[in-house]
Each structure stands twice: as structure tokens, then as C-alpha cells.
Design a protein around this nucleic acid. Structure first.
Lengths: 208, 208
DNA sequence: CCTTGATTTGACTAATTAGTCAAGTAGCGT
DNA sequence: ACGCTACTTGACTAATTAGTCAAATCAAGG
């Protein structure tokens, strides 16, 4: 009879936020425990090490935050280019919100942590790669739709989707390094250039 | 009468290589010293801490490696789009060489370390930003030349240069995360898409 | 209520690591 | 040769950190 406890999730959230704001390597087990309000023994009862926790942390964040967000941004309700515009607009929104809340731009944990850990924790890097692939799938679908609709001229939607994601993640990293939102602000124009189209202004979405 | 000793440079090289292959945070002072063949006391004689060493390490690598490399790749001898093609071709070359030599793709230390340290060591992040700017200047010049020549149609060379650099750095990071050269291999096509032109095949350059 | 197994706790160990320092060495000008 | 200063060394301390463990606690079924 498996008892259910909030400890693993508290640990996941704690590590996720800490490594997003700082870096994976800088976050100690003690810091995770303190943030999660949990003692170290409980950590080691729930997880054998930090890397295993990171795997769950990424998956949990994907399921509870990223996926719903992408589902809404890329709703087939909207015309394909509007989906792209919405996604970027909401991304900028989040970036600015982060800046306002923490006085700092943290960018996207996937790229930051993935790059930091690629040589040190291959399993975590693989997880990051998998989640990036999930992102890409939204773009592939959207670009295919845009192509079918005739609003862009694209030979290989997958190729272009890769480029778009690379550009967006790169811009988020630039924003983190420079602590300025400008690279993200420029994205609609940049992505437009990349796919050879002008993105429409995003449909305004009010948070419920 | 300032005595001159190779210690600082040995330390710079050691830290640079180690943090490129692993991460900044994972590299200990002891590891730097061992790699440099120097005792810890000498480290602290030369530098007050790791961050200050990193500043010099980035500058030293720029001066001795990156700058000569870019100067040659972007020689105004060649037509602008050929310069771009050369740069990307040599970048791929380096990536493959790295893979062959170390069995791993390490990407570009600027993005990796810059992103890792942006919130933890602002001075180092600022240095990274500065060096990225130097890279960008090569691209701005090149795109201006291309525009003047009429081989591309660009309204704002600086904007596009930013995008190109973002895409390239993003691709290098993708390559590091996935440990595959494909994102770098795709770059000529991707950059071509971004600037709305097809890059020529690179001029073959034999190493002296 | 009582048992059972999951969970939590706090105190513990061992290892790693940053940083210090006094003593020694090496190079250079005079 | 002498003295000055830059540099090097190895041994040291103090702090941090990962990981362990036996005992305590909790939650649920019988």
C-alpha cells in the first residue's frame, strides 16, 4: 500500500526553480531540502541523487506548466502564423514578468541546464533533448499547416521547425546572458525573417 | 621590475579547456592547478579567485585563437557570402575535429559558460557578452558588404547579424546537448534561409 | 487498539574544497 | 657577491557538502 506524500513534488519544484535561477551545479542538496522544507534524510528516501530528481523535475514541469501552455498557444483554433505570434508574445510576457518579479531574466532552463549537463549528466541532457523535441513537434505541425494554407513557402517543415526552435532558444539564452529582454522582443521579426513571412499581431489572450 | 612567468597563461589555458569540456562550476581550483602543473599557492599568487582567472582566460583565448580565426575566415578578400560560408564550414570542421579527438561535441564556451554564469558571476557574463559582440561585428560588416553588393536584401544589417549569431550559437548548443554535429551541419542552409540567400560552397582553405 | 510498512528526522561521518601562510627558491639589477 | 622582489611550495585550517543510519513518527487496515 503505497503511501502518497508531497515530498517528491516539493523537491522537484525546489530543484527546478533553483537550477533555473542559478545553475544545476551550484544547487546543493541542502539548498534543495531547505527550499522544499524537507530534511535531508527525506531527500535520500525519495531520490538516490540530484540527477534522478532532475529527471522528474523536468518531466513534472513539462506536464504541469509547459504542456498546457503550449497547447493553448498552439491551438488549431487560430491560424498557424497567429499561433506562432501568440507563442512568442506569451514568451515575451513571461520574460518580462520574470524580470519584474526577480529583477533578472533567467531564460529557458532547457537550454541552460542541458548545455551545462551534456557532458556531466548524460541522462539529464537526454531528458532535455526529449522535451525540446516535444516543443519542436508543435512547430512542425504549425509550419505544415502554414504551408498547406499557403501563408509560407516551406519545403521541409521539420528543418525549418528546428531552425525556429534554435533561434528562439538562442534568443532566450542571449537574454539571460545580457539580462535584457531585447533578443526576445525581436523574435517575432526574426522568426518572420526565418520563415519568410510577416507574423500577424498576436491575438490578445486574457488569463482566466 | 615585473618578473614574467608562464603561470597565469598556463592557468588560463587549463581553466578554459576544463570549463569548456565540463562546466565552470564543476571545475575546482585543485583541478585547474593540476592541469596547469602548478601548485595552489601559485594560483592564489596569480589570481584572487576563479572568476578573475576566467576573465583573463576568455580574453586570452580570444586574442590567440578566435580573433585570428575570424580574421582569416572573414577576410574581405572573399565575397561576403563566401566569408559566411567559410566561417560556417570551418566551424563545422572544428566541431567534427572535437568529436573525433574527444569523442564528444563541446560546442561554444561563450554560450555555455555565459548562460551558466549570468546570475552567479556577472563580470564573467559581461565579458562573454563583450566577446559575442566582437563576433557580431564581423557579421555586421559582412552583411553590409553583401547588401551593398546586392547579393542579399537586408534593411538592417545589425538586426540580421544578431539573428545569425543567435542561430549559430543556438545550433552549437544544440550540438552540445545532443552530442551530434547535425545542427552545425545544417547551418549553411539555415543561415541562408535567414538572410534570404543561398550560401556559396566555401572556398577550400588548407591549413599551412 | 495494534501491527505493519512507509516516511521523517536529526545527528553523524567522510570527503572535498577554498583559501592561508611561513618558509624557501629563482631571477635580476647593482 | 649581495640584496631585493617576484614567485613557488607544501602543509595547514575552516567550511561546505554528499551521503548514512538508527530511532521516531505517521497513516491505514484489520
Amino acid at each position: 500500500m503505497p503511501q502518497i506524500t508531497p515530498t517528491p513534488i516539493k523537491l522537484q519544484q525546489a530543484l527546478y526553480e533553483l537550477m533555473w535561477q542559478q545553475s544545476y551545479g551550484r544547487v546543493t542538496i541542502d539548498a534543495i531540502c531547505e527550499k522544499a522544507g524537507v530534511k535531508k534524510g527525506s531527500f535520500y528516501h525519495a531520490y538516490p541523487d540530484k540527477a534522478k530528481l532532475a529527471l522528474d523535475a523536468f518531466e513534472h514541469f513539462w506536464q504541469t506548466e509547459t504542456r498546457p501552455w503550449l497547447d493553448e498557444s498552439f491551438s488549431p483554433c487560430d491560424p498557424p502564423l497567429t499561433r506562432l505570434a501568440n507563442w512568442l508574445s506569451r514568451g515575451l510576457e513571461k520574460t518580462l514578468q520574470c524580470q519584474q518579479e526577480y529583477g533578472r531574466i533567467y531564460g529557458c532552463p532547457l537550454f541552460n541546464i542541458g548545455s551545462e549537463l551534456s557532458t556531466l549528466e548524460p541522462q539529464v541532457a537526454a531528458k532535455v533533448g526529449e522535451i525540446l523535441r516535444r516543443h519542436r513537434d508543435y512547430l512542425i505541425t504549425t509550419l505544415r499547416d502554414a504551408s498547406a494554407e499557403g501563408s509560407v513557402e516551406i519545403d521541409d517543415a521539420e528543418e525549418v521547425a528546428r531552425d525556429v526552435l534554435t533561434l528562439v532558444e538562442g534568443a532566450l539564452t542571449q537574454a539571460r546572458i545580457s539580462n535584457k529582454p531585447d533578443p526576445v522582443r525581436r523574435l517575432p521579426k526574426s522568426v518572420g525573417r526565418l520563415i519568410g513571412a510577416t507574423l500577424p499581431s498576436p491575438q490578445i489572450l486574457t488569463v482566466s
